[in-house]
Protein backbone atom coordinates (compact mmCIF):
# COMPACT_ATOMS: atom_id res chain seq x y z
CA UNK A 1 0.00 0.00 0.00
CA UNK A 2 2.74 2.42 0.88
CA UNK A 3 4.49 1.65 -2.38
CA UNK A 4 1.31 2.47 -4.21
CA UNK A 5 1.13 5.85 -2.50
CA UNK A 6 4.67 6.56 -3.55
CA UNK A 7 3.76 6.20 -7.19
CA UNK A 8 0.64 8.32 -6.86
CA UNK A 9 2.41 11.30 -5.50
CA UNK A 10 5.73 11.21 -7.22
CA UNK A 11 4.30 11.48 -10.74
CA UNK A 12 2.79 14.95 -10.45
CA UNK A 13 5.79 16.05 -8.44
CA UNK A 14 8.14 15.04 -11.23
CA UNK A 15 5.95 16.68 -13.85
CA UNK A 16 5.82 19.94 -11.89
CA UNK A 17 9.52 20.04 -11.25
CA UNK A 18 10.46 19.30 -14.83
CA UNK A 19 7.99 21.89 -16.17
CA UNK A 20 9.40 24.41 -13.73
CA UNK A 21 12.92 23.78 -14.98
CA UNK A 22 11.84 23.90 -18.62
CA UNK A 23 9.99 27.15 -17.93
CA UNK A 24 12.98 28.83 -16.34
CA UNK A 25 15.34 27.70 -19.07
CA UNK A 26 12.97 28.87 -21.78
CA UNK A 27 12.50 32.21 -20.05
CA UNK A 28 16.20 32.82 -19.69
CA UNK A 29 16.95 31.66 -23.20
CA UNK A 30 14.23 33.85 -24.64
CA UNK A 31 15.21 37.05 -22.91
CA UNK A 32 18.49 37.28 -24.76
CA UNK A 33 16.93 37.36 -28.19
CA UNK A 34 16.08 41.09 -28.04
CA UNK A 35 13.19 43.05 -29.51
CA UNK A 36 11.62 42.21 -32.85
CA UNK A 37 12.10 44.88 -35.45
CA UNK A 38 8.45 45.12 -36.50
CA UNK A 39 7.28 46.24 -33.10
CA UNK A 40 6.46 49.81 -32.08
CA UNK A 41 6.20 50.06 -28.32
CA UNK A 42 4.01 52.85 -26.90
CA UNK A 43 3.47 53.63 -23.23
CA UNK A 44 2.38 56.57 -21.13
CA UNK A 45 -0.71 58.62 -20.33
CA UNK A 46 -3.98 56.76 -19.99
CA UNK A 47 -5.69 59.95 -21.22
CA UNK A 48 -3.83 59.81 -24.54
CA UNK A 49 -4.19 56.01 -24.73
CA UNK A 50 -7.52 55.96 -26.62
CA UNK A 51 -6.04 58.12 -29.41
CA UNK A 52 -2.89 56.02 -29.76
CA UNK A 53 -4.95 52.85 -29.66
CA UNK A 54 -7.27 54.16 -32.38
CA UNK A 55 -4.36 55.24 -34.61
CA UNK A 56 -2.50 51.95 -34.06
CA UNK A 57 -5.65 49.97 -34.81
CA UNK A 58 -6.21 51.80 -38.10
CA UNK A 59 -2.51 51.61 -39.03
CA UNK A 60 -2.57 47.84 -38.56
CA UNK A 61 -5.46 47.42 -40.99
CA UNK A 62 -2.92 47.79 -43.83
CA UNK A 63 0.20 46.80 -41.89
CA UNK A 64 -0.86 43.82 -39.76
CA UNK A 65 2.75 42.59 -39.54
CA UNK A 66 3.62 45.56 -37.29
CA UNK A 67 2.75 44.95 -33.65
CA UNK A 68 1.96 48.12 -31.70
CA UNK A 69 1.29 47.30 -28.04
CA UNK A 70 0.08 50.35 -26.09
CA UNK A 71 0.49 50.71 -22.32
CA UNK A 72 -0.93 53.02 -19.65
CA UNK A 73 1.90 53.61 -17.15
CA UNK A 74 0.83 57.25 -16.87
CA UNK A 75 2.61 60.27 -18.36
CA UNK A 76 5.39 60.20 -15.75
CA UNK A 77 5.74 56.42 -15.91
CA UNK A 78 5.88 56.54 -19.70
CA UNK A 79 8.60 59.22 -19.71
CA UNK A 80 10.59 57.19 -17.20
CA UNK A 81 10.71 54.33 -19.71
CA UNK A 82 11.14 56.68 -22.67
CA UNK A 83 14.27 58.37 -21.35
CA UNK A 84 15.79 54.93 -20.74
CA UNK A 85 15.19 54.04 -24.38
CA UNK A 86 12.80 51.23 -23.40
CA UNK A 87 9.93 52.43 -25.61
CA UNK A 88 9.65 54.03 -29.04
CA UNK A 89 6.83 56.48 -28.34
CA UNK A 90 5.66 58.12 -25.10
CA UNK A 91 2.03 59.22 -24.76
CA UNK A 92 1.89 62.39 -22.65
CA UNK A 93 -0.85 64.67 -21.38
CA UNK A 94 1.72 67.36 -20.49
CA UNK A 95 5.02 68.52 -22.02
CA UNK A 96 8.18 66.70 -20.97
CA UNK A 97 9.69 68.14 -17.77
CA UNK A 98 13.17 69.58 -17.67
CA UNK A 99 14.35 66.83 -15.32
CA UNK A 100 13.03 64.21 -17.73
CA UNK A 101 14.63 65.75 -20.79
CA UNK A 102 17.94 66.05 -18.90
CA UNK A 103 17.67 62.37 -18.10
CA UNK A 104 17.10 61.64 -21.79
CA UNK A 105 20.13 63.69 -22.78
CA UNK A 106 22.24 61.89 -20.18
CA UNK A 107 21.21 58.58 -21.75
CA UNK A 108 21.89 59.83 -25.28
CA UNK A 109 18.21 59.75 -26.22
CA UNK A 110 17.08 62.35 -28.74
CA UNK A 111 13.42 62.80 -29.42
CA UNK A 112 10.80 64.72 -31.36
CA UNK A 113 7.65 66.17 -29.82
CA UNK A 114 4.30 66.14 -31.61
CA UNK A 115 1.09 67.80 -30.47
CA UNK A 116 -1.67 65.40 -31.49
CA UNK A 117 -4.93 66.72 -30.01
CA UNK A 118 -6.59 68.98 -27.46
CA UNK A 119 -8.62 68.14 -24.42
CA UNK A 120 -10.89 70.70 -22.77
CA UNK A 121 -11.07 70.14 -19.04
CA UNK A 122 -14.75 70.54 -18.32
CA UNK A 123 -16.17 71.96 -15.11
CA UNK A 124 -19.51 70.30 -14.49
CA UNK A 125 -22.47 70.67 -12.16
CA UNK A 126 -25.67 68.79 -11.41
CA UNK A 127 -28.48 68.86 -13.96
CA UNK A 128 -30.72 70.63 -11.42
CA UNK A 129 -28.25 73.49 -10.99
CA UNK A 130 -29.54 76.35 -13.19
CA UNK A 131 -27.73 79.27 -11.58
CA UNK A 132 -24.05 78.45 -12.08
CA UNK A 133 -24.10 78.30 -15.88
CA UNK A 134 -20.99 80.46 -16.06
CA UNK A 135 -18.20 80.93 -13.53
CA UNK A 136 -15.13 83.13 -13.65
CA UNK A 137 -11.65 81.69 -13.21
CA UNK A 138 -11.40 83.78 -10.01
CA UNK A 139 -14.51 82.10 -8.61
CA UNK A 140 -13.15 78.66 -9.55
CA UNK A 141 -9.90 79.52 -7.82
CA UNK A 142 -11.73 80.68 -4.69
CA UNK A 143 -13.54 77.33 -4.58
CA UNK A 144 -10.64 75.02 -5.35
CA UNK A 145 -7.54 76.74 -3.96
CA UNK A 146 -5.57 75.27 -1.10
CA UNK A 147 -7.14 76.05 2.26
CA UNK A 148 -10.47 77.08 0.75
CA UNK A 149 -13.43 76.59 3.11
CA UNK A 150 -16.19 77.46 0.64
CA UNK A 151 -18.94 74.93 1.27
CA UNK A 152 -22.06 76.77 0.13
CA UNK A 153 -22.99 78.17 -3.27
CA UNK A 154 -23.99 81.49 -1.69
CA UNK A 155 -20.34 82.05 -0.76
CA UNK A 156 -19.30 81.76 -4.40
CA UNK A 157 -21.29 84.75 -5.66
CA UNK A 158 -23.91 86.89 -3.98
CA UNK A 159 -27.23 85.97 -5.54
CA UNK A 160 -26.46 82.25 -5.65
CA UNK A 161 -28.89 80.25 -3.50
CA UNK A 162 -28.14 78.84 -0.05
CA UNK A 163 -27.18 75.36 -1.18
CA UNK A 164 -24.38 73.12 0.11
CA UNK A 165 -21.50 72.90 -2.38
CA UNK A 166 -19.82 69.51 -2.63
CA UNK A 167 -16.75 68.93 -4.78
CA UNK A 168 -15.66 66.02 -6.96
CA UNK A 169 -12.34 65.81 -8.74
CA UNK A 170 -9.55 63.58 -9.98
CA UNK A 171 -7.00 62.29 -7.49
CA UNK A 172 -3.58 63.82 -7.11
CA UNK A 173 -1.82 61.30 -9.40
CA UNK A 174 -3.81 62.53 -12.35
CA UNK A 175 -2.46 64.78 -15.09
CA UNK A 176 -5.88 66.44 -15.14
CA UNK A 177 -5.36 67.42 -11.50
CA UNK A 178 -1.89 68.82 -12.28
CA UNK A 179 -3.20 70.90 -15.17
CA UNK A 180 -6.31 72.22 -13.41
CA UNK A 181 -4.39 73.24 -10.29
CA UNK A 182 -1.68 74.91 -12.37
CA UNK A 183 -4.15 76.90 -14.48
CA UNK A 184 -6.88 77.71 -11.95
CA UNK A 185 -5.08 77.72 -8.61
CA UNK A 186 -1.94 79.12 -10.26
CA UNK A 187 0.27 76.61 -8.48
CA UNK A 188 0.64 73.05 -9.68
CA UNK A 189 -0.66 70.43 -7.22
CA UNK A 190 -1.97 73.11 -4.81
CA UNK A 191 -5.59 72.26 -4.15
CA UNK A 192 -7.96 71.93 -1.25
CA UNK A 193 -8.00 68.30 -0.21
CA UNK A 194 -11.51 67.94 1.21
CA UNK A 195 -13.22 66.84 -1.98
CA UNK A 196 -14.33 63.45 -3.24
CA UNK A 197 -11.38 62.23 -5.30
CA UNK A 198 -11.34 59.33 -7.72
CA UNK A 199 -8.95 58.13 -10.40
CA UNK A 200 -11.98 56.90 -12.37
CA UNK A 201 -13.73 59.81 -14.07
CA UNK A 202 -16.90 57.76 -14.46
CA UNK A 203 -17.14 57.71 -10.66
CA UNK A 204 -16.98 61.52 -10.69
CA UNK A 205 -19.75 61.62 -13.33
CA UNK A 206 -21.91 59.43 -11.07
CA UNK A 207 -21.13 61.63 -8.05
CA UNK A 208 -22.01 64.92 -9.76
CA UNK A 209 -25.14 63.55 -11.41
CA UNK A 210 -26.49 62.27 -8.09
CA UNK A 211 -25.75 65.31 -5.92
CA UNK A 212 -27.72 68.56 -6.48
CA UNK A 213 -25.07 70.82 -4.96
CA UNK A 214 -22.15 69.12 -6.71
CA UNK A 215 -19.33 70.53 -8.80
CA UNK A 216 -16.55 68.55 -10.45
CA UNK A 217 -14.03 68.63 -13.29
CA UNK A 218 -12.64 66.08 -15.74
CA UNK A 219 -11.78 65.53 -19.42
CA UNK A 220 -14.07 66.77 -22.20
CA UNK A 221 -14.93 63.24 -23.41
CA UNK A 222 -16.50 62.38 -20.06
CA UNK A 223 -18.77 65.41 -20.35
CA UNK A 224 -19.85 64.79 -23.96
CA UNK A 225 -20.62 61.13 -23.25
CA UNK A 226 -22.74 62.10 -20.24
CA UNK A 227 -24.19 65.45 -21.33
CA UNK A 228 -27.72 64.22 -20.63
CA UNK A 229 -26.79 63.54 -16.98
CA UNK A 230 -24.76 66.65 -16.05
CA UNK A 231 -24.44 70.33 -17.00
CA UNK A 232 -21.22 71.93 -18.13
CA UNK A 233 -20.10 75.31 -16.78
CA UNK A 234 -18.94 78.03 -19.15
CA UNK A 235 -15.66 79.55 -17.99
CA UNK A 236 -15.00 83.30 -18.02
CA UNK A 237 -11.32 84.25 -18.07
CA UNK A 238 -12.01 87.95 -18.57
CA UNK A 239 -13.20 87.69 -22.19
CA UNK A 240 -16.74 86.51 -21.49
CA UNK A 241 -18.25 83.11 -20.85
CA UNK A 242 -16.98 80.32 -23.10
CA UNK A 243 -18.55 76.85 -23.09
CA UNK A 244 -16.21 73.97 -23.95
CA UNK A 245 -17.07 72.55 -27.36
CA UNK A 246 -15.16 71.11 -30.30
CA UNK A 247 -14.92 74.53 -31.93
CA UNK A 248 -14.02 76.60 -28.82
CA UNK A 249 -11.38 74.06 -27.80
CA UNK A 250 -10.02 73.82 -31.34
CA UNK A 251 -9.68 77.58 -31.87
CA UNK A 252 -8.25 78.12 -28.38
CA UNK A 253 -11.04 80.41 -27.16
CA UNK A 254 -11.89 77.95 -24.37
CA UNK A 255 -9.11 79.14 -22.17
CA UNK A 256 -7.32 78.45 -19.87
CA UNK A 257 -8.65 74.89 -19.52
CA UNK A 258 -7.78 73.61 -23.02
CA UNK A 259 -4.68 71.49 -22.89
CA UNK A 260 -2.52 69.86 -25.50
CA UNK A 261 -1.87 66.12 -25.80
CA UNK A 262 1.52 64.94 -27.01
CA UNK A 263 3.43 62.02 -28.31
CA UNK A 264 7.20 61.94 -27.97
CA UNK A 265 9.07 59.83 -30.49
CA UNK A 266 12.57 58.52 -29.96
CA UNK A 267 14.67 59.77 -32.92
CA UNK A 268 16.53 56.47 -33.12
CA UNK A 269 13.18 54.71 -33.53
CA UNK A 270 12.06 57.34 -36.02
CA UNK A 271 14.88 56.20 -38.29
CA UNK A 272 13.07 52.88 -38.65
CA UNK A 273 10.70 52.89 -41.63
CA UNK A 274 7.71 51.42 -39.81
CA UNK A 275 7.98 53.96 -36.97
CA UNK A 276 8.28 56.83 -39.42
CA UNK A 277 5.31 55.52 -41.41
CA UNK A 278 3.36 55.17 -38.20
CA UNK A 279 4.09 58.74 -37.07
CA UNK A 280 3.12 60.10 -40.49
CA UNK A 281 -0.07 58.05 -40.34
CA UNK A 282 -0.65 59.36 -36.82
CA UNK A 283 -0.45 63.00 -37.86
CA UNK A 284 -2.56 62.47 -40.98
CA UNK A 285 -5.37 60.73 -39.11
CA UNK A 286 -5.19 62.15 -35.58
CA UNK A 287 -7.85 64.81 -36.17
CA UNK A 288 -10.52 62.34 -37.20
CA UNK A 289 -9.57 59.57 -34.77
CA UNK A 290 -9.12 61.91 -31.78
CA UNK A 291 -12.64 63.23 -32.27
CA UNK A 292 -13.97 59.71 -32.59
CA UNK A 293 -12.68 58.88 -29.10
CA UNK A 294 -13.83 62.17 -27.55
CA UNK A 295 -10.95 64.62 -28.01
CA UNK A 296 -10.52 67.63 -30.27
CA UNK A 297 -8.21 67.61 -33.25
CA UNK A 298 -5.80 70.34 -34.41
CA UNK A 299 -6.20 72.13 -37.72
CA UNK A 300 -4.82 70.26 -40.75
CA UNK A 301 -2.15 72.92 -41.19
CA UNK A 302 -0.92 72.38 -37.63
CA UNK A 303 -0.49 68.65 -38.25
CA UNK A 304 1.26 69.22 -41.60
CA UNK A 305 3.68 71.83 -40.23
CA UNK A 306 4.75 69.39 -37.53
CA UNK A 307 5.31 66.71 -40.17
CA UNK A 308 7.38 69.10 -42.27
CA UNK A 309 9.67 69.51 -39.33
CA UNK A 310 10.51 65.84 -39.77
CA UNK A 311 12.12 66.28 -43.16
Amino acid sequence: MIKNEFKKFSKPAIVFTSLLIVGIIAACGGSGSGAESSEILIDGSSTVFPISQAVAEEFRVNRPEVQIPVGISGTGGGFKRFVEGEIDIADASRPIKESESEQAAANGIEYTEFVIAYDGLSVVINKANDFAACLTTAELKMIWERGSTVDNWNEVRSGFPDKPLRLYGPDTDSGTFDYFTAEINEEEDASRADYTASSDDNVLVQGVSGDQGAMGYFGFAYYTENSEMINVVAVDDGDGCVTPSVSTINDGSYSPLSREMFIYVNNASLARTEVRNFVEFYMNNAAELAEEVGYVGLSDADYQSQLEGLN
Partner: peptide, 20 residues
Protein backbone atom coordinates in the same frame (compact mmCIF):
# COMPACT_ATOMS: atom_id res chain seq x y z
CA UNK B 1 0.41 43.54 -13.64
CA UNK B 2 -0.22 47.20 -14.44
CA UNK B 3 3.26 47.89 -13.10
CA UNK B 4 4.96 44.86 -14.68
CA UNK B 5 3.30 44.94 -18.10
CA UNK B 6 1.35 48.23 -18.29
CA UNK B 7 0.02 47.12 -21.69
CA UNK B 8 -3.70 47.33 -22.29
CA UNK B 9 -3.80 47.12 -26.06
CA UNK B 10 -2.17 43.96 -27.31
CA UNK B 11 -2.89 42.30 -30.65
CA UNK B 12 -1.02 39.05 -30.22
CA UNK B 13 -1.13 35.98 -28.00
CA UNK B 14 1.92 35.29 -25.83
CA UNK B 15 3.82 32.53 -27.62
CA UNK B 16 6.75 32.06 -25.25
CA UNK B 17 7.65 32.82 -21.64
CA UNK B 18 9.41 35.90 -23.02
CA UNK B 19 6.31 37.38 -24.72
CA UNK B 20 4.70 40.66 -23.79
Amino acid sequence: ILIISSLVWVTFIPTSPDSK
